[in-house]
Structures are given as C-alpha cells and as structure tokens.
Design a protein around this nucleic acid. Sequence first.
DNA 1: CACAATCATTAGCAATGCTAATCGGGGAAG
DNA 2: CTTCCCCGATTAGCATTGCTAATGATTGTG
Lengths: 141, 141
Amino acid sequence: MGEVQTRDVAARLHSASIRLLRALRREDDGSGLSAPRLSALSCIVVEGPLSLAELAEAEQVRPPTMSRIVDALVGRGLVTRIADPRDRRSVRIMPTQEGSQLLIGGGERRVHALIGRLHKLADSERRALARGVEILERVAR
Amino acid sequence: MGEVQTRDVAARLHSASIRLLRALRREDDGSGLSAPRLSALSCIVVEGPLSLAELAEAEQVRPPTMSRIVDALVGRGLVTRIADPRDRRSVRIMPTQEGSQLLIGGGERRVHALIGRLHKLADSERRALARGVEILERVAR
DNA sequence: CACAATCATTAGCAATGCTAATCGGGGAAG
DNA sequence: CTTCCCCGATTAGCATTGCTAATGATTGTG
C-alpha cells in the first residue's frame, strides 16, 4: 500500500473516530452524568476502591481535576470518600450501592447505541469491521 | 454474525477509539492550538471556505461555540472572515496562508503520528484496516 | 410594506482541564 | 524526640469549551 493511501487511511480513521465518539457521547445524557463523571464512576465501580491519585492516573487527568469530579459524584450520593486507616493523608474512593446500580441498570448506553448502528450493516460488512477493529486495537495500544 | 460477537465488536471499537484519540492527543501540544481549534482549522483548510453554520455542523458543535473558536483562530491570524456577497447575513471562513502552512508544514501532527503507527502493520493488515475504516465512516455518520 | 425566518453574534451559565499554593500527615536524620 | 522535608489531597484562580436565550442584521414572503 502506497504512502498516499496510508495517509488517507490515517486521516479518515482519525476523523471517523472523533465523529463516532462525539455521536456516542450524546447517549450519556440518559444517565444524568457528564462524560468525565460517568467515566470516573465506571472506573470506581469496576476497579474497586481507589485512591484519588490512582483514579486520576487511570482517567489521565490531574489530581485537582479528579478531586472536583469526585466532589460531584459524592454530592449525588454515587460515591463515598473513606479515610485510609493506614495512611491518613490518603482517601479510598468507593461506589455506593446507588452508584453501582446506576451503571448496571443504565447498562453501557454508549455500547448499546453502537450495537444499534452495527445492526444496520450487512453481515459481510460487520465481519470486515470486526477484522479492522482487531487491527485498530493494536494501532491504539 | 451473532449478537454476542456484535456486542464484542461494539465494546472493543468504543474502547479502541478512546485509546487511539487519547494517545494522539499528546501530539497536539506542538501546534500551540487546543484540540477543538486544531480540528476546526483542519476542517477549514481541507473543506475550503465554509459558512459558520456549515463549520459548526461539520464539527458537531453549536454555532455560538464555533463562533468563539473562529474568533480565536482569527486572533492568531490563521483564518479570516469574509462577508458573503450573495447573502450578507452569512460569512465565509477561509484559511490564511499562515493557517494553511501551519497544518501542511508543521501540521496534522496527529495524522502524522498515526501514519507512523500504521507503518508498523503488515501490508495486508493495512488493507484490512482501510476496509474497516470505510465501514467505520458509515457507522460514525 | 409588514412580518416571519435565517445567520451570526453576544451574554451568561456550568463543567473540565491546568498550575500554583496550602494543609496536614508520614518518615527520616540528627 | 524534634526538626525538616516529602507526599497526598484539596483549594484558589485561570482559560477553554460547551450550552441556551436573546439580539442584530438581512432576506424573503404574504
């Protein structure tokens, strides 16, 4: 494959990824949480109790930013801060029952919306896309 | 393709897109422009003169948001607003020479970085990915 | 001609991201 | 034991991005 086509693939992949995520982001509305808050909550629920620094690192954000997001989640009763008994500088952030349920019940709205879009494809196209996604995963890593 | 595999493709596509864009976002630093500004400038350079509404629609953003982004690009001399002679309510937004050069010369750092990643693939993989990207464009639209 | 529709902008709000500064606990050196 | 420094989290303050509502200017229509 020539350089020209490679550039074309790169530019279009970049553009399509942006559009896809922007389109899917609208699905987040149903949860009543913004994208960063939903993502942080998901991380807390899935990865169990985390310190603030760990959470910030997982979400690729600075500690003050994450501290404020946690504030908002605490304010909605989705998450709690617990002082770490071993090191009282640190906090352990855990989901409340309500927080866990919001994620489980709401069920990955973004993925669900994406499945809906994939259903409109022909079967052969879905297979070709599946192959492309495998390669995309390597490219993104 | 079964429902289970479709869900798998959807979840992995979502996750891979997020990772890809996060990785590429680091490249933006060198341009001195934020991601939305760089993306808007790229659209203006590639798609030629556009009205504000067209540009907002292309970037999936509301007109006031885009108006402010254009303000910033005008302030840096990367873009100009020209009154449309056919309809004086409308403006035509064009790149300046400096704006075009920033993209062409220094620019498209993200795409350039992505090309580097694609070069590590086997030729057959690049072709399969190219096919997947075509389909992804339809899914994302 | 009057009136509604359209395009862009302005005003004002909330949220996200950052850095710098601060508070308080932990740990090591003297 | 005390002092001094490091470290985790938070607070303060700024810039940017996103939105909706309202305003201005212009176009087209009844």
